[in-house]
Write a protein that binds this DNA or RNA. Structure first.
Length: 304
DNA sequence: CGACGGGACGC
DNA sequence: CGACGGGACGC
């Protein structure tokens, strides 16, 4: 992660020393702050990179300060922090995301408390984020990201209904990656991508018998959010041909699929919740032990 | 507790 | 009862 955070929502008058002072007043110790500027005009670009001694420090600062008011701002401007890394951003385009949606968060739950609860059980945890509205009030849900699918899948069951964070039992669902329309042209084109779809879905389908993953495939085809395989950068000619084909396909698919997408989203959450109840009620510890031992009945795997 | 409606690729 | 980041890379 290169020991640095991306910081957004900066106003033009926020200098590096101002930002550094704000972190210090919040009990964090960055090594340096660099405010980025428009390369041509020299105007502040509205974001900065904040460097720390270690990855641990930067992640800690992110979870403790994100969403909190920046000292010395009036009207209040809140910290908007994110992990920053060239490689991570590049990988983000290629790698699958292993995250869960967490709902029923009470107002006192912030990024850090959410992070701590999951970090105590899941060593691969990357980030936790509570979604706030423009006034800084929680929307009652958030996202927790993991480094691998094992822990993401385990948390889906083990943390559903968890009490001990805020004053309500947590609700956990599979997180649907946020659509990024810019990725459309990368997805709907190559056979390589199609092949990776099937390999990605077959693993998940036996695990989750709900309609989610079939529908997710449709999402993936539309948004390009599936499991894009590493593929060589297309040549300029190929890119043009692909862009034309993808644009036509996307335009045709967009209108037809828009309505379905919203429905899928909400149904998914309900299905998973009901499944959790069925699985967890009879014998909770059994499922935990099965999860942790990565044991699955071969018959069950083949059947679905 | 079923399921919106704002806003639309990339040249 | 809710589905995230709109803006991202110099010294």
């Amino acid at each position: 992660m290169q020991c640095q955070l991306w910081m957004g929502s900066l106003e033009p008058n926020m200098t590096e020393s101002f930002i550094m002072a704000a972190f210090l007043r919040m009990g964090q110790r960055p090594l340096a702050v660099k405010v980025m500027r428009n390369k041509f005009t020299g105007e502040p670009a509205g974001y900065a990179f904040v460097h720390f001694q270690t990855d641990e420090e930067s992640v800690d600062a992110m979870h403790k300060l994100n969403g909190k008011p920046i000292p010395g701002t009036f009207p209040v401007v809140r910290f908007r922090l994110n992990t920053a890394s060239r490689e991570a951003r590049a990988n983000l385009q290629q790698e699958r995301e292993f995250s869960v949606w967490v709902g029923d968060l009470s107002p006192d739950v912030d990024d850090y408390s959410l992070y701590r609860v999951f970090a105590s059980k899941y060593s691969s945890i990357k980030t936790a984020k509570v979604i706030l509205d423009s006034s800084g009030y929680t929307k009652g849900y958030g996202f927790v990201r993991f480094g691998n699918e094992e822990e993401q899948r385990n948390a889906l069951y083990a943390m559903n209904g968890y009490t001990g964070l805020g004053n309500k039992p947590l609700k956990i669902c599979t997180a649907v990656p946020k659509p990024k329309s810019a990725l459309i042209t990368q997805s709907a084109t190559s056979t390589t991508t199609s092949a990776s779809y099937s390999s990605g879905t077959e693993y998940s389908q036996y695990y989750d018998p709900s309609a989610y993953w079939q529908n997710y495939s449709a999402w993936s085809g539309y948004y390009g959010q599936g499991e894009p395989a590493p593929q060589p950068a297309p040549t300029a000619d190929a890119a043009q041909a692909h862009a034309a084909a993808a644009a036509a396909a996307a335009a045709a698919a967009a209108k037809a699929q828009t309505d379905d997408l919203a429905l899928v989203d909400h149904k998914t959450c309900i299905d998973i919740e009901q499944m959790n109840q069925e699985f967890l009620d009879p014998e909770l510890s059994l499922w935990d032990s099965l999860e942790s031992s990565k044991w699955f009945p071969p018959d069950l795997i083949e059947a679905h």
